[in-house]
Structures are given as structure tokens and as C-alpha cells.
Simulated scan of single mutants.
Amino acid sequence: MVLVALNLRPALSSVSPLLARLQADLALSPAAVGALTTVPVLCLGLFAPLAPRLSHRLGIERALSFALLLLGSALLLRAQHQLFSLFAGTILAGAAIGIGGTLLPVLVKREMPERADLLTGVYTMALCLGGALGAGLSVPLAGLLGGWAPSIAFWALPAAIALIAWRGLVAHLWPQHTADRPRERHPGLSRNALAWQVTVLMGTQSSIAYIVFGWLPVLLLQRGIGEATAGLMLGFSVLTQLVSALAAPWLGRLGRDQRPALVGLLSLAAVGFALAMLGPASLVWPAMVLLGLGLGGTFSLALTLLVLRSATPAIAGQLSGMAQGMGYCIAALGPFAVGLLLDWKVGLAGITVLVLAILAVAMASAILAGRRLQLRVDESSGEITTAPPEYCR
């Protein structure tokens, strides 16, 4: 699972440090550059609901194998000096990541329900490590391999290694479907307030993360920071996410619920981004630390909530599909908005106001989603409902 998770972020983080080269080589318009950062996030949301269906038909192990195969193929397709291949590969990569990222929380709930929050922290740490490697190594790989295309294609290699390991080490059993055992799916989730609170939290915190993935090097260039250094700063910030990603589930256990940890981590992200954009140049590196700690911990806890707020693996699968499907569609609006602001020549101050506004919405939803509640099946109606606190672990 950790090896799979390592491959779910380099496809997203490895492009932004190379945007200037892509724009010059392919004569991309500002709108096309903005679309390149927005499309993969949108695809995460559009294809996430496909994951439960694939899992039902193929089994969760085969569905993850399919996602890895699609991801590796998409990265090779994207690494062509053609505009169509670039966008087609980006769309397919987003689809693969959307499917794989939706299935992992379900697998955690199924395999280790009693330690699900801590295991979520471990694979979230792997996600962050993959993102850091993609951001930090993109420019050096482009110099070593002779251009942006082989730098992007390089990330198909770890995807292939993960696929081989997943196929070789994990049993791929076909799911057993019988007439008296239909697909376990309960109605009422889309009308549940708690499910929407988790979804909005997932969407808004992801929006900030993908603004950072897609635009941070470009924004740092406006501060006069060089291309290679900007890429390293992004990689370093994502690397610091490892610490908080692993520690956040433990922090969430310290209190009665996850609200204090979520509010504290989102505050770190807000201070870090504001300092990075508007603070003194000497504080940009410390700002990367604060930003990384805040985003890594918030993402880890948001994924943990998918498990903690679900009474069964079936509900976890539904909530994961909704929160990541709708959530990533919400998240795509952030990078798109930043692209528009840059196209309109809005400065760093205006972009910072936008990011802080998104973080304020994330904090409000965190206060609601972080309460000690759980989604359960009502025995009388068969619909998903919110259980009172005394029924939660």
C-alpha cells in the first residue's frame, strides 16, 4: 500500500517546476498553462466515483492494478512534444490517481479497522514523499536526462515497479457476487450533513494543496527566486508534510475529537502561505516548513476522517467516493482561479487573499466534520444516518 501511495503524487507535482519550459517549448498560452494545472485535479474528482464500481466488478486489488497500469501509460503518453499528448496523458493520469486514491481508504478500513487512523497516516506520508520527490527532482532530472519530456516520463518507472510488486505480493481474487449478496450500498449519504462537511473539508484543503503543487514555483519566480530553487522549495515544503502526515492521526487522538488538531494545522498553512508570498525574503524557507506541516497534517486527518466517520467498510467506500469525487471537483476551482488571477495580472497580495479565504472555509468545515460523530446504517430505514457520540469509538 505504501509503494502504491508513493506513485499517486509525482504525476501532479512534477510538472509545475517545468511549466516555464513547457510554455516555451509548446507555445502554451496562459489559459493552457492554467488548464494544465486544473485538469488533473478535476479528473481526480470526476473519476473517483468510478473506483467503487471497478472494485465491485474486479475486486479492489485488481482495480488498484488497473490504476497503476493506467498511470504508467499516461505518464509515457504525456512525455511527448505534442499538445494533444500532453493533455491526454494529464487527463488519464488524473483518472488513475482518482481511482487509486479513492480505493486506499477502503482497503485500510477492511484490513486494519482498529488501527485505521494510524495506517492512514503511514500511507499519507508515502503520498507526501512521492509529491516531494516529484517536485524536487523534476528540474535536476530534466538537466540530467536532456529535457522536460524524459523528466516526466521517468515517473512511469516507479509506477511500473509498484505494479509488479502489487501483482506479485498481493492476492488478486475475483469478487464473489451472488444473487442473494448484492452490492452493499446504502442510500441517504448525499443528504447527510456530516458527509457534506467531510466533503467540503476534503475539497477546500485539497484546493490549497493543488494551488501549491501547480503554482507555487511560478509564484516564487515572481518574488525573484530562480527556477531550480523554486522547485527545490516546493519539494522541501512537500517533504516536510511527511512529519505532520504521520503525526496528525496521533494528534487527533489526543483530544475528544479532531477539531483542535485540524484548526491548528490549517492555521499553520495560512501563516506559511502568507509569509511565503508577502513576508521578508529571509522567511521564505521557514514559511515552506509551516506550509508543509499544515497541509500534510490536514490532508492526513481529512483522509483519516473518511475512516473514522464510517461504521463499516461499505460506508467508508461510499464516503470516500463522495468526498474525493465531489471534493476534488471543488479543489479544481482553486488552481483555476489562481491561473485567472495571474492572467489578469493580479499580484501576490490578491492571490494570498484568495488562498486565505479558501482556508477560512476549510476551517469552518473542519470544526463541523471534526466532531466525534459517525455515519451508520439506520436499522429501521436502511439509510445512512449520523450516530450520536456515544455510539462512536
Rank of each mutant, 00 (worst) to 15 (best):
219 L>N: 07
82 Q>Y: 08
144 L>I: 06
206 S>W: 06
38 T>M: 01
149 A>F: 00
334 G>K: 10
219 L>E: 04
48 A>M: 06
81 H>G: 12
356 L>A: 05
384 I>R: 06
21 R>K: 11
144 L>P: 05
36 L>N: 09
108 V>W: 03
348 L>N: 10
16 S>V: 04
267 S>T: 15
361 V>Y: 07
166 W>I: 01
138 S>N: 09
303 L>S: 11
39 V>M: 03
285 W>A: 11
373 L>N: 10
118 L>E: 13
185 R>V: 15
391 Y>R: 13
387 A>E: 06
274 A>P: 13
297 G>I: 08
274 A>R: 12
286 P>L: 00
81 H>D: 14
252 G>T: 09
73 S>V: 15
29 S>L: 02
241 Q>L: 09
388 P>V: 02
128 C>E: 14
148 W>E: 00
210 Y>V: 06
315 I>W: 00
322 M>H: 10
85 S>I: 00
195 A>R: 11
5 A>D: 03
204 T>R: 06
70 L>V: 12
174 W>E: 13
170 V>Q: 10
125 M>G: 14
80 Q>P: 01
185 R>N: 11
322 M>I: 05
357 A>T: 12
382 G>C: 05
69 L>D: 06
284 V>D: 01
385 T>Q: 13
252 G>V: 06
392 C>N: 12
341 L>W: 04
280 P>Y: 08
72 G>S: 14
243 V>F: 12
74 A>M: 06
66 F>V: 15
332 A>W: 07
320 S>A: 07
73 S>I: 14
386 T>C: 09
357 A>S: 14
1 M>R: 08
378 D>C: 10
3 L>N: 08
333 L>T: 15
91 I>P: 11
358 I>L: 15
261 A>F: 08
155 W>A: 00
270 A>G: 13
347 G>W: 02
41 V>M: 04
226 G>H: 02
216 L>H: 02
111 E>G: 10
372 R>M: 10
163 L>H: 09
82 Q>K: 11
210 Y>S: 02
334 G>N: 08
12 L>S: 04
386 T>H: 03
119 L>Q: 12
172 H>Q: 15
274 A>W: 11
65 S>L: 14
62 R>W: 05
330 I>M: 14
313 P>S: 02
353 V>N: 08
319 L>D: 02
256 R>S: 11
328 Y>A: 00
121 G>W: 04
194 L>Y: 05
123 Y>P: 01
270 A>S: 14
172 H>D: 13
389 P>I: 10
294 G>H: 09
385 T>A: 14
284 V>S: 01
180 D>K: 12
148 W>R: 03
285 W>P: 02
260 P>S: 07
122 V>L: 15
32 A>W: 13
110 R>Q: 14
190 S>W: 13
191 R>M: 07
163 L>V: 05
59 G>S: 07
98 G>D: 00
97 I>C: 01
249 P>M: 07
38 T>H: 00
315 I>S: 03
373 L>Q: 09
146 G>I: 10
95 A>N: 04
108 V>D: 04
186 H>I: 01
384 I>A: 02
275 L>W: 09
377 V>D: 00
